[in-house]
């Protein structure tokens, strides 16, 4: 873990708030919409997986494990990352 020693606790923020080119770990997913949640987990966006944000515009592009995903802001807001 990157910040384990330097900080008391890990920062947990949404993917939207994350800085590009940083790598963290998916902490949890939070959404009221079961369809979105189902889609995310089926596609392999799961808590515990390492995640790297590659770009924020024109849409969010990130990498989980070996796969890249493009999502909009709405979805990026549901993904919580700790790093």
């Amino acid at each position: 873990m990157v910040n384990k020693n330097s900080r008391l606790a890990l920062k947990t923020i949404t993917l939207c708030a994350m800085e590009p080119k940083k790598t963290g770990k998916i902490d949890h997913l939070e959404t009221k919409n079961p369809g979105i949640l189902q889609k995310l987990i089926a596609m392999g966006i799961l808590p515990g997986m390492p995640i790297t944000l590659l770009r924020r515009s024109p849409s969010y592009l990130f990498e989980v494990d070996q796969t890249r995903y493009a999502v909009d802001r709405e979805i990026a807001n549901h993904i919580y990352v700790s790093y």
Binding site: I36, K39, L40, M43, S59, L61, T67, R68, Y69, A70, V71, D72, E74, I75
Partner: peptide, 11 residues
Amino acid sequence: EAPTFILEMPP
């Protein structure tokens, strides 16, 4: 509802 966008990006 408004649409949402998730797409896998193949290499």
